Each structure stands twice: as structure tokens, then as C-alpha cells.
Computed example of a mutant assay.
Amino acid sequence: MARTGLYKSEVKKARDTLLAMGRRPSVDAVRIELGNTGSKTTIHKYLKELEEEDGGAAVPSRTLSEALQDLVERLAAQLQAEADAQVLSARSAADSTTSRLQTEMEALRMTAADLSARLAKTDGARLHEAQAHEQTRTQLQEQTAASHALELQVRALNERLAENEQHRNSLEEKHQHAREALEHYRTATKEQREQDLRRHEQQIQTLQAELRQLRQEAIVKQEEVTRVNQEGVRLVAELSHSQQALYEQRSVAARLQQKLDTLQELANRNQMLESQLVDRSAVNEQLQASLARAEQENATAAQMLQKVEIERAALQAKLEAHESISAELRAHLRDTEPSPRKNRQSES
């Protein structure tokens, strides 16, 4: 791993060592002499500054191959620096875009989770309202059945009251007939007594016998009248009981009317609950549409992230291609560079 903090004095020392060994102080040679440490751009800059300081006197005349190799090394170093800058910029942009997309995706996930929670809460409220609606409907049906049964009871009691009224009228007619018969009997008895008194002297024996017979018949009639009166009293008592029952049935009918009013209020409340359920269903549909939009935005963000990854891979491939070209150029230069021994032979 290359160390940091390369000094100009270190580059100068490595260059002087290479010159003393009769080797050309190229960027790669200086870097190897430094132990493969330091940036090539920094080494090239320091070598250029040292060359300018020496005024070119300390550097021996270079051949065309050496000049070309130096030019290629400089171009390779500049290309490496530009590639590093582009890669660093691309990585920074990709990291920034990735961070931004991750933040947006996290926000979208939180929004989706919130929408899911709200949707679940809305579903729970809708289910609770549906259960309450069903319970109210069941109670309404039960109250309707009970009201119908009570109406049947009221109708039966009204019929029974009408029958009791007819029976009372019949008893009153019988009582009136008995009174008329008794009055008629009394009138006939009086007339008979007057006739008997006129014939008293002639038919004393017969009248006494008939009187005893009439007294017996009167006793029988009186007993019949007593029974009729007792029957009338009983009928009057039954009529009083019937009137009391009618009053109670009217009270029951009033309570039933109150229950019917309560059921009407429950029906109105049920209708209001159904309206609220329709409104909450509309809100539920809006939440589902928002969730669908959030999922679509999430998919778009994922596509953008994938596109950034593709661009990053392309830049990496481009960097690797540059490095491969630089390596080939270095290898070619090493192959074409003359060795120090051949140079000394040619000089001799």
C-alpha cells in the first residue's frame, strides 16, 4: 500500500541514485526506488521541478526512445490522474445519488408503512361499524317481531273486549226483560186481587187457596229476580274488569308506540352509520390509490438506482481499460528501452 506524505527531497535522492547507477530516472523507476510508494502524479511533478531547478545540466542527453518513453509515461500519469479524478467524481456522484435514493426509498417505505397502518386501522373501524350495523339490524328485527306479537295481543284483547261488551249488552237485555215480566206480573196480580176482593164473599175458600198458590209463585219469582240481580251485579263486575283490562292494553299499546319510536330512531341511526361507512369506504379507496402511487415511486427509484449502478460499472470498466492500456504502454517501453550494457558498447 502506498504511503502518504511523499517529500521532494526523497524524490531527489532516488533520482540521484538512479543517475549514479547509469539509469534514466523515469517516474516508474523513481517509484520503484522509493519502494513502490507515492503517487505517480506527485513523483512526476517533483521530477519536473527538479529538472527545472537543474536547468537541464545534470540530466544527460536523452535518446528519442527515452524522450518518447518519458512522454508516454507523462501521458500515462496524466491519463491515470484524469481517470482517477473521473472515477472519484463518478463515485462521489454515485454515492450521493445512492444516498439520496436510499433516503427517498426509506421515506417511501415509511410512507407505505404508515399507509398500511392507516389502511389496517380503517379496515378495523369498517369491520367494527359493519358488526354494529349487523347487531342493530338484528335488534331491529327482534323489536319488529316483538311489536308484531304485541299488535296481535292488542287485537286479540280488543276482540275479547268486544265480546265482553256484547255479553254485557245481552245480560242487560235479559235483566230488562225480567223487570218487564216482573212488572207485568205485579200488574196482573193486582188486577187478580181486585177481582178476588170483589168476589171475596163468594169465593173466600178458592181465593185463599189461590192466594197461597200465588204467594208461592211470588216467592219463586222473587228468587228468580234475586238471581237476575246477582247476575247483573256479576256482569257489572266483569264489565269493570274488562274496562281495567282495556286500560292496561291501552297502556301496553302506548309502550309499544314508544318502542316503535325508539326503533325508528335506531333505523335513522343505522342509515347514518351506513352513510359514514360509505364515506370511510371512499377514504379507504383513496388510501389504496396513495399506496399504489407510493409503490410506483418506489419502483421508479429502484430503476434509477439500477441505472446508477450500471453507470458506475461502466466507469469502472473504463478505468480498468485505461489501466490496461497504461500497462501495455509500460511493457512496450520496457521492451524497446536499450539496456545500459548495450549503450556502453555502442559508445566504446
Rank of each mutant, 00 (worst) to 15 (best):
D335G: 08
H133P: 00
G5T: 12
L287R: 05
D123S: 11
S281R: 15
Q166Y: 10
H128P: 06
T189K: 00
D123V: 09
A162V: 10
T187Y: 06
D335A: 07
Q213D: 02
L260H: 02
Q153G: 10
G38R: 01
Q264Y: 00
P340A: 08
T97R: 11
E53I: 14
A209P: 01
N343H: 06
Q230N: 10
L75P: 00
Q80R: 15
Q276F: 04
E180D: 13
R250L: 02
E295T: 15
E217S: 05
A218W: 00
S240Q: 09
E159V: 13
A20G: 14
K221C: 07
A149S: 06
A81K: 07
R193V: 13
T98L: 11
A294W: 01
D28M: 08
A81S: 04
T111Y: 02
T122N: 12
N284G: 14
I32F: 07
S346Q: 15
R118W: 05
L119A: 12
Q102R: 08
T189V: 02
Q230A: 07
L277E: 02
Q131V: 08
A321M: 08
L157G: 06
R168F: 06
R31P: 01
K8R: 13
L140C: 09
L273P: 01
L115T: 12
G124N: 11
R168A: 12
E142L: 14
S170E: 12
T262D: 09
L6M: 08
Q249H: 03
Q213K: 12
R23V: 09
A181M: 01
A120T: 13
V30N: 00
T144L: 10
T336L: 07
E323W: 08
L319D: 06
I32K: 13
E163Y: 05
Q303S: 03
T226L: 10
M1Q: 04
A81V: 07
Q345N: 04
R193P: 00
S99C: 07
A317D: 03
V236W: 04
Q230G: 09
L88G: 08
K190E: 03
A57D: 06
K307P: 01
P340W: 05
N158K: 13
D28L: 13
Q143K: 13
R15T: 15
G22M: 02
E172V: 11
L75F: 13
E33M: 03
T111H: 00
E49C: 06
L71F: 09
G35D: 01
N270T: 14
H241N: 10
L273C: 04
E295N: 05
D335K: 05
A237W: 01
T226G: 11
S346K: 15
A282C: 13
T300E: 03
E201Q: 08
A302K: 04
Q86V: 15
L68K: 02
V220R: 15
E309W: 05
R280N: 08
Q306K: 09
L115H: 09
D196G: 03
E106A: 02
